[in-house]
Amino acid sequence: MLTIKNLHAGISEKEILKGFNLEVKAGEVHAIMGPNGSGKSTLSNVLAGKKEYEVTAGEVKFKGKDLLVMSPEDRAREGLFLAFQYPIEIPGVSNINFLKTAINEIRAYKKMQPIDAKDFLKLVKEKQALVELQVTLANRSVNEGFSGGEKKRNEIFQMAMLEPTLCILDETDSGLDIDALRIVANGVNKLRSKNRSFVVITHYQRLLDYIIPDFVHVMYDGRIVKSGAKELALELEKKGYDWVKEKLAVGSGQ
């Protein structure tokens, strides 16, 4: 599904990713944990195609295709979805219009007919229920006036609508209370399938109580320094990130 090899990338000539490697197979859930400043958000921005970030070395293959040469929209059309850490408010752009345009542009890319208006509304209703999003989206602008929890639920709702094959969740748990966290996690769990993979980026372990990962990776200074099963997250929670840093320092003989 996704193969990242020796990825070096940065912003404003500052290198942040320094040889990042990751292999995600279909249906797998990978958690990437790491202290602040380890490059987690840079990774998600680079994968989504934010133009301010420059890739200086390495490659990213998505379903066998070179992801890095694609425009952000083509990445989305190929099945990549980024749930933003800070979803943007877009006044004046209706949620529903925007989603319909998105779905139809993705369908056009796949040489499919535009979605039928009735089917679309049915889909909206069904997917809204998935994340218990009760706001009447039809009359509201994208994320405008949404609470923190509603914004994150709206991200998962959009994810459900667009049916991607690779979902990147960038600190989706940040700013959520425990109820909202559970709702968001439930939504994600319902979307898990053998053809859909997840990369869950988080600072804290608590999200992983709800979304059980197949693999946990620890990111530090722009690359993965430790990988393991879901238990690694608990160990990290107990010992803190300093534990990894210390081990690294010893390992490199400093």
Binding site: A48, G49, P72, E73, L82, L162
Partner: peptide, 11 residues
Amino acid sequence: ALFYLRTRGLS
């Protein structure tokens, strides 16, 4: 905002 919309598949 432009980037956000494009990550959802809009040209």
